[in-house]
């Protein structure tokens, strides 16, 4: 038990260091590129209060080192100040938007990986069979569809031609009460979630199938069958139980891309989560929000990486901390 705690501690330190490096990286990007965000100030119409904020919070206008210190301190303490556009503290915007995104992403990821796990297991087991080939074609196709286009097509089909789903937003305006609001939220999240599920499913399916093929070549599968186990048990107790491990690794590596998918999907469906907020803030040059979201999202990715690593450790006894 001590081993795992030590591992978490070690990884947390790693995360912090990586986070620091990311802040430095973004700062360098923002400071040294030609049309950097500072330069943008030249022709965007910031009010004096906004200028004051920028100076105080981000160190704009100060010499490089001081600027960096100000920036760094504020970013690590999550002190982002107020949004230019909304005028409210950035964290309050994030508090509102983040749960919506987590709901969307969380549900989509869980669903797609569960389906991927189950279908991939069967697809790999009956290699060359109908399910296998269908899964492969499906995965190939959906792996190569641009997320935004898929979103529009689904909107076109199911919110326009056959209007089952709403055209956008995250909740029906004017809704009262917790439960109706929750249902409305789910209803609105449904179409974006379908998009996300389809996209991640492609990757998860393929990977699970490949992983299954690897595992099926292992001797212990033969052993399991030789012991007289039922087909189902061989499949799930032995084969996919091992095949899922690379799936977790891939999940970790694909997190940054899942987040990207969320950004696009939210924008298409006007689903006011973190991704939507990010894109609209960049368009509006709402700097505090842009910085805040960049770092928060990066941090989230890092934290989820850690969760996945721990999960991997739980599932694979060969990994010992």
């Amino acid at each position: 038990m001590g081993g795992i705690l030590r591992y978490i501690a070690g990884r947390t330190i790693q995360i912090i260091i990586t986070y620091f490096i990311i802040i430095i990286f973004v700062f360098l990007m923002a400071s040294f590129l030609p049309s950097n965000f500072v330069g943008l100030l030249a022709f965007s119409h910031f009010t004096p209060q906004q200028m004051a904020y920028l100076k105080a919070q981000l160190g704009i206008g100060l010499p490089l080192w001081e600027s960096f210190v100000v920036f760094f301190v504020h970013m690590v303490t999550f002190n982002y100040g107020n949004s230019f556009y909304y005028g409210v503290p950035v964290m309050s915007l994030v508090e509102q938007a983040l749960p919506r995104t987590l709901l969307l992403l969380g549900e989509a990821t869980v669903i797609s990986y569960i389906i991927g796990y189950v279908v991939g297991t069967f697809a790999g087991w009956k290699r060359g069979g109908v399910l296998d080939n269908t899964s492969i074609y499906f995965s190939f196709a959906f792996y190569n569809i641009p997320t935004f286009w898929l979103g529009i097509i689904l909107l076109y089909a199911f919110a326009f031609l056959f209007p089952i789903f709403p055209l956008g937003g995250y909740v029906t305006p004017g809704i009262q009460g917790m439960l109706p609001a929750f249902i409305s939220l789910q209803y609105h999240a449904l179409l974006p979630m379908i998009v996300l599920v389809l996209i991640s499913l492609a990757g998860a399916l393929l990977l699970m199938r490949t992983s299954m093929l690897d595992v099926l070549g292992e001797e212990y599968i033969n052993l399991a069958a030789a012991k007289g186990l039922k087909e189902r048990d061989v499949l799930f107790t032995h084969a996919s139980r091992n095949a899922i491990l690379p799936l977790i690794t891939s999940f970790i590596l694909s997190l940054p891309f899942i987040v990207s998918g969320a950004v696009v999907t939210e924008t298409i469906f006007s689903y006011q989560g973190i991704g939507y907020l990010f894109i609209s803030s960049i368009d509006r040059l709402d700097m505090p929000v842009v910085y805040a979201l960049t770092f928060i999202i990066a941090l989230l990715v890092l934290v989820f990486n850690l969760f996945a690593d721990i999960l991997y450790g739980v599932l694979d006894p060969r990994v010992r901390y």
Binding site: Y220, N222, L223, R241, N242, L245, D316, R318
Partner: peptide, 8 residues
């Protein structure tokens, strides 16, 4: 070596 399921 490989005949046993490594996770059980």
């Amino acid at each position: 070596m490989n005949s046993f399921n490594p996770v059980i």
